[in-house]
């Protein structure tokens, strides 16, 4: 699996934080998140921003494991994190099943008075991502899916 494009013109003037290729499993996602915490901390990011990046990245990567690779081991995920003046940019690529049409909106916020038995046990991933990022983009082509977004520096969003 070849790497993410290294010469993206938008990456000029930004600080690389982490580039990694990980297996498409939940355990590998967890390890990658812990590595991300260390790298972002070393890069000087504040704790709130790191926490938000962790929430967003967890949902993005878990989605790839579940929906692109259908919970089957063997797939790989490319992950790149850079620090820009607008925030922390996350770029993720995989070779699994593409998302058809628009990106999901995710589950709407819980309505007041929802009965206990009717409480949702999932579906919050995309809504969390959308609440926490700017500039969410996705495209798929030549068998590879690319997703990118920016987590603004803390207290901006």
């Amino acid at each position: 699996m070849s790497g993410l494009q290294a010469d993206d013109p938008e990456d000029r003037g930004v600080v690389p934080v982490m580039t990694s290729e990980i297996p498409g499993t939940y355990d590998a996602v967890r390890e990658a998140l812990l590595a991300m915490r260390r790298k972002l901390s070393q890069a000087g990011a504040d704790r709130d921003t790191i926490g938000t990046v962790e929430m967003v990245l967890a949902e993005i990567l878990n989605n790839v494991v579940e929906h692109a690779y259908h919970d089957r081991a063997g797939g790989h995920i490319l992950l790149k994190i850079t620090c820009t003046e607008n925030g922390i940019r996350i770029t993720v690529a995989d070779d699994g099943t593409p998302i058809n049409g628009a990106l999901p909106e995710g589950r709407a916020a819980l309505k007041d008075g929802t009965e206990l038995d009717d409480l949702p046990e999932g579906g919050f991933g995309w809504s969390l991502i959308r609440m926490l990022v700017n500039d969410l983009q996705y495209h798929s082509g030549d068998g590879r899916n690319h997703l990118r977004c920016v987590v603004p520096h803390a207290s901006v969003k």
Binding site: M55, N62, L116, L119, G122, F124
Partner: peptide, 14 residues
């Protein structure tokens, strides 16, 4: 916790 963990806590309540 991620959304899967949240879902598991909701399931634990139900």
């Amino acid at each position: 916790i991620d959304s899967s963990g949240l879902g598991a806590i909701v399931a634990a309540m139900k």
